[in-house]
Design a protein around this nucleic acid. Structure first.
Length: 606
DNA sequence: TTAGGGTTAG
């Protein structure tokens, strides 16, 4: 049944305006009132103009009230805008769309969807503006189902050819991890502009399809009169970062400089992040130092980049510099800070940062911070503290998977069967990483020589139909990807040659003082630790590439992206790559997109 | 004649 949008029609004068009534100016014409509203520079003048609108009797005029709603929305006063909307006699499509946009701006997408729902039941029909707005609410919520329903309404209302609606839909499908539908919308467009191309490039980049993103960027550059702007370049840089592709990243950097976007905060942050992920923290630092007035985001990119690179002290120095400049850290900054402590053996400092987060900086620690600290304690063998901390946190199953998975890995490393059992139990009962939990628990028992337990776990896995996908990796050589499974050396005709090469490499690393093995690296000197870790991981990377070892999904891959090659590794990799190219066939690469930002590519180092 | 789309750190 069609019904009016609003039923309560009691007009209220905003309290801020009542006290100012004696100072009222009188704008009698609608044009003057609207002009005054558009000129408002702060919320006080909006409230003042609101009173003028009321006094002049134009509050019944939908057009004028829409301007007033927009003014409130502009200053993020959605509750005031909503109240006005509720009191309108005849809200129209602009009133609804403006309010919806306001809710989205203050990150209240559900409120926007509620308005849209009301619209569908009313006489007010949505238009292209409405759809372009409401689709954003679904992107924000990553709510594919609602997004699809709205897409069908887009078709029903005949706005499927609208450029802006299509760009929103591409973005929505991308954010909901449905790249195929994003591409379908993109392909179905009669006309595209730089925004629609950017939406599609971003959708690829955000879904670990960096190669597709770069391919699309190449296509865009081939178009006549096309020119990327800073939005597009930021997306492209992000794609390079996710691929660890330094050469493409440098090309994008050159384009940024050529087009004068170097000091753009967003682009510069993307560059800082990209160079760090490509193993060039020095370049990150150079780009960062050229940002005229860096905000929390480039600072955080730099802190995280340095932390991941193993430069813990450097990372913490940047954090201190940021505080000195009175830039307020946020939750992501603290992930970087805790990571820096974790990777530099600064456990007590890390604990102090955790405790000071809320007290000093007003950032409430959440699961991701506790996971960092569990990892930090676990790495140095403080398993009991790590376990106590994990137990003390109330988490939802999906959020706790990383926390308890981290604890499980650390327990295995230090052969703490008791804690490994508890962590596995949590994961299995929460239905998270079940196969990995079983296998790790079984391996922990094996390390402790408890073979009966190993057999019983294997039996339980079989009985419950739990199957662990073998660990895998892939390398890119020229334009082909080569995929390898753990233990699957037989595929390579020269597998034994590769294995002996790896053994030789490991021997040479040990000669230089690398301490590998199940306990990982133990070192006091931060810089030295970083170097050793890099060399050590190279060995793992080479072995992983040939399926000789299994590495937990998604964990080491991410770390490995940041590595640089030492001379020995470089030579070994060169030789191995020649063998790979000759003896392997391209496999099904799409299977591996479940690796978050998954990339093991090394071609830029060759 | 008011309202709409794309970007950066975990």
């Amino acid at each position: 049944m069609v019904k009016p949008l609003n039923q309560n029609l009691i007009f209220r004068v905003p309290s801020t305006c009542i006290s100012r009534q004696n100072k009222l100016y009188h704008f009698h014409t609608k044009t003057q009132l609207i002009q005054r509203l558009q000129d408002c520079n702060d919320i006080t003048s909006v409230s003042f103009s609101h009173t003028n609108v009321l006094k002049s009797g134009f509050l019944n005029d939908t057009f004028t009230t829409n301007h007033l709603i927009n003014s409130y929305v502009r200053f993020r006063r959605t509750n005031d805008a909503n109240q006005l909307f509720e009191e309108m006699r005849e809200p129209n499509v602009v009133s609804c769309t403006s309010l919806m946009a306001g809710f989205i701006n203050v990150r209240r997408p559900k409120s926007a969807l509620l308005i849209f729902g009301k619209m569908l039941e009313s006489r007010v029909l949505p238009n292209a503006f409405t759809f372009a707005t409401v689709v954003n609410a679904c992107s924000m919520l990553a709510d594919l189902r609602t997004g699809q329903k709205i897409h069908s309404h887009v078709e029903t209302f005949g706005v499927q050819c609208n450029l802006v609606v299509c760009s929103s839909l591409i973005d929505m499908y991308g954010k909901c991890n449905n790249v195929d539908d994003a591409r379908r919308v993109f392909d179905g467009m009669d006309y595209r502009n730089v925004v629609s191309w950017t939406s599609m490039i971003t959708a690829y980049g955000q879904n670990a399809l960096g190669e597709c993103a770069l391919q699309l960027f190449r296509e865009f550059n081939g178009l006549p009169l096309s020119s990327p702007n800073h939005f597009m370049l930021a997306s492209v840089i992000n794609a390079c970062a996710s691929l660890g592709r330094l050469v493409s990243g440098k090309v994008a950097h050159a384009a940024v400089i050529r087009r004068g976007h170097e000091s753009n905060d967003v682009v510069a942050s993307a560059l800082v992040d990209m160079f760090a992920k490509c193993g060039c923290i020095g370049y990150s630092d150079k780009v960062f130092r050229r940002i005229p007035d860096p905000s929390v985001i480039p600072y955080t990119s730099m802190i995280v980049g340095a932390a991941k690179y193993g430069l813990g002290k450097f990372s913490l120095d940047i954090f201190k510099e940021m505080l000195d400049r009175r830039i307020k850290p946020n939750d992501v900054t603290f992930v970087g800070v805790l990571h820096a402590c974790s990777h530099s053996g600064l456990v007590d400092d890390g604990l102090e940062y955790l405790h000071s987060m809320h007290k000093k900086h007003g950032v409430v620690p959440d699961t991701k911070h506790y996971t960092c600290v569990v990892d930090m304690l676990g790495r140095t063998g403080r398993l009991d503290e790590a376990y106590q901390l994990a137990k003390s946190i109330q988490v939802e199953p999906d959020q706790g998977a990383l926390l308890w998975g981290t604890l499980l890995s650390a327990s295995r490393l230090y052969e703490r069967v008791d804690i490994a059992v508890e962590a596995s139990k949590w994961l299995i009962e929460s239905n998270q990483q079940v196969a990995a939990a079983y296998v790790t628990m079984s391996n922990t028992y094996a390390m402790a020589g408890k073979w009966e337990n190993v057999h019983s776990i294997r039996y339980e896995m079989k009985h419950n139909g739990v199957y662990k996908e073998p660990g895998c990796s892939w390398v890119e050589i020229r334009d082909s990807a080569y995929v390898f499974y753990a233990g699957d050396v037989s595929l390579c005709a020269r597998g034994s040659e590769v294995a002996s090469l790896l053994r030789e490499l490991e021997r040479r690393m040990k000669e230089r003082g690398y301490v590998g093995g199940s306990r990982g690296l133990v070192s006091v000197d931060v810089e030295e630790e970083a170097k050793e870790e890099i060399v050590g991981l190279h060995s793992e990377r080479l072995a992983l590439a040939f399926g000789l070892i299994s590495i937990p999904k998604g964990v080491t891959i991410r770390v490995m992206k940041n590595l640089r090659m030492c001379r020995d590794c470089h030579e070994a990799f060169k030789l191995i790559s020649e063998i790979v190219e000759r003896d392997f066939v391209v496999r099904d690469v799409n299977r591996f997109h479940h690796f978050e930002n998954g990339s093991c590519t090394c071609r830029d180092f060759w």
